[in-house]
């Protein structure tokens, strides 16, 4: 288990954050310690939100007077759950379709690539924006259906690349000698999947999922800049925000981290804590997941490298043994 030390540490950290966020109603203040105005003893107003970080408000407060650290703690569960579920769905659908294409219909692979050629030339952020715009200003639609739609779109954006990857890897595995000999002995496709491919699929599936979590996090954050928030936007806008052009600034409804970044990024000159706290939090999340990804990549892809190296070493001594009859030996070659 020592080979997966970083993975275990990283995922348990994420799990702790998720649990703390899910259990927030049990211990946290329901209104995030909301306090808009500060009065002195005579009842006169001496200050109003937003307050900068201080001992009382660890990460400062929002314009609405809510403590940023409580808001962040409350909202992180949506970010994590959304990214994780999108990644898992992408890998499941893409993996299944990829394996089916590779095993039963290899000729389809080319056509599949052609069908989704658009995705190769237009960055996914643009496609996501175009597909998400229809629900930017929904008319009386329940949040659940907005979220479902957004998740479907997010899954769809990553689906082609995962499918092609999965098909490529399955093609590679089908060429290996153990699968070939299994076929020669009369195994069917289902048997191959169950016996030969499944052990590989487990490790590759986990690696894919982690990679997809990263890309989902990135795209959620980029979308939020364009005011396309996961979980819908609050049309009333941010409390106390004065726009020079008079339009309300949309606010994220779910307090999800990417949404918090997106709704506040214009305010970083006056109140940098509001946007930098979730942004740095996001950065930490990405760092943790990237650490897990690196280790998994090293373990899965590195193991194969080691095997080939070992093989080469085994093959080498043969000619050396034959030339041993000379007057001197090569100690290092």
């Amino acid at each position: 288990m020592r080979r997966y030390k970083k993975t275990i540490i990283g995922s348990s950290l994420l799990l702790i954050i998720l649990l703390m966020s899910c259990l927030y109603p049990l211990y946290g203040p329901a209104d995030f310690n909301q306090k808009v105005l500060i009065h002195d003893e005579n009842g006169r107003v001496i200050d109003r939100a937003p307050f900068p970080p201080s001992e009382e408000h660890w990460l400062g407060t929002t314009r609405n007077g809510e403590d940023v650290h409580w808001v962040l703690l409350y909202g992180v569960k949506f970010t994590l759950i959304a990214a994780f579920s999108v990644a898992v769905l992408r890998v499941i659908f893409g993996g299944i379709v990829g394996i089916i294409i590779s095993l039963w219909a290899p000729f389809l692979k080319r056509y599949f690539k052609d069908f989704f050629l658009t995705m190769r030339y237009i960055p996914s952020i643009l496609i996501a924006i175009i597909l998400m715009i229809p629900i930017k200003f929904p008319d009386d639609v329940a949040i659940s259906s907005i979220v479902t739609y957004q998740l479907i779109i997010l899954v769809f954006i990553g689906f082609p690349s995962v499918t092609v990857f999965a098909a490529d890897i399955t093609d590679e595995l089908l060429k290996t000698s153990f699968v070939q000999s299994s076929y020669l002995m009369g195994a069917g496709n289902f048997h191959i999947i169950k016996r030969q491919l499944l052990p590989y699929m487990r490790s590759y599936g986990i690696l894919f999922t982690v990679q997809q979590i990263l890309s989902t996090l990135q795209i959620i954050m980029q979308l939020s800049i364009f005011e396309l928030f996961l979980g819908g936007a609050n049309r009333a806008g941010i409390f106390g925000y004065d726009d020079p052009y008079g339009r309300p600034k949309l606010a994220s409804m779910s307090y999800e981290w990417a949404g918090l970044i997106g709704q506040n990024f214009t305010e970083f000159t006056q109140m940098p804590w509001i946007v930098f706290a979730p942004l740095l939090g996001f950065f930490v999340l990405i760092l943790i997941i990237n650490m897990i990804k690196k280790e998994l990549e090293n373990n899965i892809l590195g193991v194969q490298l080691m095997k080939t190296k070992r093989k080469r070493k085994k093959e080498k001594p043969l000619p050396a043994a034959q030339t041993h009859t000379g007057k001197f030996d090569f100690l290092h070659d």
Partner: peptide, 23 residues
């Protein structure tokens, strides 16, 4: 195929009509 893939991707939002609380 490329043309239809393109059309498919960008008309995808029309598949999901939104009712009260379901997609």
């Amino acid at each position: 195929l490329i043309l239809f893939g393109f059309l498919f991707i960008f008309t995808l939002p029309l598949v999901f009509g939104s009712a009260e609380d379901t997609v």
